[in-house]
Structure formats: structure tokens, C-alpha cells
């Protein structure tokens, strides 16, 4: 297991390296952009050239790439040209907000999905299974922004019981916890739709196994068989998928954050993309990819711990 982790970590480092290089190379397709953007359209060419020299942008791309990576390893991602602020300060702050929203959503989504998925999958094609399958399929089909619009129309416009924006400030007239309700609900509907289907199909698979039939024919009660024989095995496959939801919850929240003006990481990336703020985009991509790969590693390790049949 230790060797496997070491190998995966090395793999991770290589992929991160490739990703950072790709993003950097993409940026190189239009050099000189950055200085022009800082100085504005009315700066003379000589001013632009001067700043380009001063920032060291006239040096070969490879030299600058390694310099950038060297700094990035110490947590220095340069300055945002749009926010005029060090990228690291900006990013950790936003990332913290997103992680908070992600953690709350995760704590809601996982129990609901596991419960509904298991209950639906234990009697394949029963009425409950049919109902849950259709429900989860519809939930996963409604884009987050559409779900946001529907919930907003009901709870904010019509009933007026919840706030329509979640800027996480206390002066908006709504308690902070109430500002979390709608964003969490939107994420939950969309993501749980997918997870329920995953847990259900794994449960269906397990319930078809001969050992389940044996246990039933031996006279065990259905409840007992589900709880003692099926549940544990049915949760092995979805475990990885559940962990992978963390990726979605870190970068995929951009829509929910935009809907509710939530000051998170996804919206930062969107604003950076719209403002062509490459420094922020680069750093954010590295962070997001690291999160993806770390969850993958933990997923694999957990998978091995849960299922003794899997060895590497």
C-alpha cells in the first residue's frame, strides 16, 4: 500500500507538471498581453516594452516557466492583474468559502443518496425503486441554474421565506445560516440525483449475487440480509464515486455561486476567465487539479481498505 501511494504521488506530480505546462503554454500564445492589459490601451509602445522588460517577460518562456513553478511551490502565485492583489491571498479566502459550502452540501447529499439508493436497489423494479429512479433521473437532468431558478421562484419570489442572495454578510437582513439553504438545496438536488443512481445500481448488482439468495433461502429475514450481507458490499463501488463528488463540489459550484452571488472559488475562476486574468486562472487550475488527484488517491486507498479482494 505504501509503494502504491508513493507511485500514485509520483504520477500525480507528473500530471500536475503536465497540466501546469499546458496552461502556461496556452498563455504563451499571445505574449505581451499582460503588460498591455496592466497599462491600458492608451499607453505608448515604449512604456509597454519597458514594463515587459521590468517584469522579465522578454526572457525565454521556459526560463519563466521554471521560475513560476519555483515560486508556486512556495505558495507564491504572482499577482492578479484584475484584482490587483496577490493571487494566493485572494484564492485561499475564496477556496475557504467554497469548501464550507461543499462540506455542508456533502454532509446532506451522502446520507440521502445512500439511504434512497439502498432502499430502491434492494427490491429491484419494485414501486419504490421505480419512483426513486425516476426522481433521481429528473434531479440529475435539471441543470443547476434551472433548479436555482425554480427554487428561487418558489421560496424567494412567491413565499418570501428565504434570501435570494448569499454574500455571507450579516448586514443583508438575513441570518448567515439562512443564506446557505438555497445554495445547498440546489447542489443537493443535482448531485444527489446522480449519486442515488450510482448507489442503487451497485445495490441491485449485489442483490443479484448467489450468496444473497443463499442467505434468504436459509431463512434469514430480508431486513437482516440487507443490513448484514448486502449493505457493506453494495457501498464499496459508490465509495469512490462519492469521494469524487468532492471535485465537483470544489470547481463545479461555479453555477451555484453565480446564482446566489456567493463569494467562492468557482466564481473567482469565472471572473478571472472573463477578465482574462491568467495568473488567477493558472493558480486556480493547479489547485483544482491537485484536489482532483488527491481525492482520486484517497479513493483508491479507501477502496483497497474496504475490499480485501483488491490488491496492487
Amino acid at each position: 500500500m505504501l509503494r502504491y501511494s508513493a507511485k500514485q504521488l509520483l504520477n500525480m506530480a507528473l500530471t500536475l507538471f503536465a497540466v501546469s505546462f499546458l496552461v502556461f503554454a496556452l498563455n504563451e500564445l499571445s505574449p505581451g498581453d499582460v503588460t498591455r492589459k496592466i497599462l491600458g490601451p492608451y499607453a505608448s509602445q515604449s512604456q509597454v516594452d519597458h514594463l515587459t522588460r521590468e517584469m522579465g517577460l522578454d526572457r525565454p518562456a521556459l526560463v519563466r516557466y521554471f521560475e513560476y513553478m519555483g515560486k508556486a511551490l512556495t505558495g507564491n502565485f504572482g499577482n492578479s492583474i484584475y484584482y490587483r492583489q496577490p493571487v494566493s491571498e485572494l484564492m485561499w479566502d475564496r477556496l475557504g468559502n467554497t469548501l464550507l459550502l461543499a462540506a455542508i452540501s456533502f454532509a446532506v447529499i451522502v446520507p440521502i443518496s445512500v439511504l434512497l439508493g439502498v432502499l430502491a436497489g434492494m427490491r429491484e423494479r419494485g414501486w419504490f425503486d421505480r419512483a426513486v429512479s425516476i426522481f433521481s433521473s429528473i434531479c440529475a437532468s435539471i441543470p443547476e441554474f434551472a433548479m436555482g431558478v425554480f427554487l428561487l421562484a418558489i421560496f424567494v419570489v412567491w413565499l418570501g421565506v428565504l434570501p435570494g442572495t448569499s454574500p455571507l454578510r450579516g448586514d443583508a437582513g438575513w441570518a448567515i445560516w439562512m443564506q446557505f439553504v438555497l445554495p445547498v438545496l440546489v447542489v443537493t438536488f443535482y448531485d444527489a440525483g446522480y449519486l442515488i443512481a450510482m448507489v442503487r445500481s451497485s445495490m441491485v448488482e449485489v442483490m443479484r449475487q448467489p450468496y444473497i439468495r443463499t442467505a434468504l433461502l436459509k431463512g434469514n429475514s430480508f431486513r437482516n440480509v440487507v443490513a448484514k450481507h448486502a449493505l457493506r458490499n453494495a457501498l464499496i463501488t459508490p465509495f469512490t464515486v462519492i469521494l469524487l463528488q468532492l471535485n465537483y463540489l470544489v470547481s463545479g459550484l461555479v453555477v451555484v455561486e453565480t446564482l446566489f452571488a456567493y463569494p467562492g472559488f468557482g466564481r473567482l475562476m469565472l471572473e478571472a476567465a472573463l477578465a482574462k486574468d491568467i495568473a488567477v486562472l493558472e493558480a486556480g487550475t493547479l489547485v483544482a487539479v491537485s484536489v482532483t488527484m488527491l481525492t482520486q488517491l484517497f479513493g483508491d486507498l479507501g477502496y483497497m481498505a474496504l475490499d480485501p479482494r483488491i490488491r496492487v
Binding site: T15, A18, V19, L22, V23, L26, N27, L29, S30, N247, Y248, V250, S251, G252, V254, G266, M269, L270, A272, A273, L274, K276, I278, L281, G284, T285, A288, V289, T292, M293
Partner: peptide, 19 residues
């Protein structure tokens, strides 16, 4: 393929569209 998949999709969109 793995390298492309490592990018969260929405971020891949944002990079390409920014560029």
C-alpha cells in the same frame, strides 16, 4: 487522456474560452 480528465471540466472551458 488522464491528463485531460484531471482538469475539472468547467475549468477547462473557462481556460479555453478566456484564451
Amino acid at each position: 487522456g488522464d491528463t485531460l480528465l484531471a482538469f475539472p471540466k468547467i475549468i477547462l472551458y473557462l481556460i479555453i474560452i478566456a484564451k
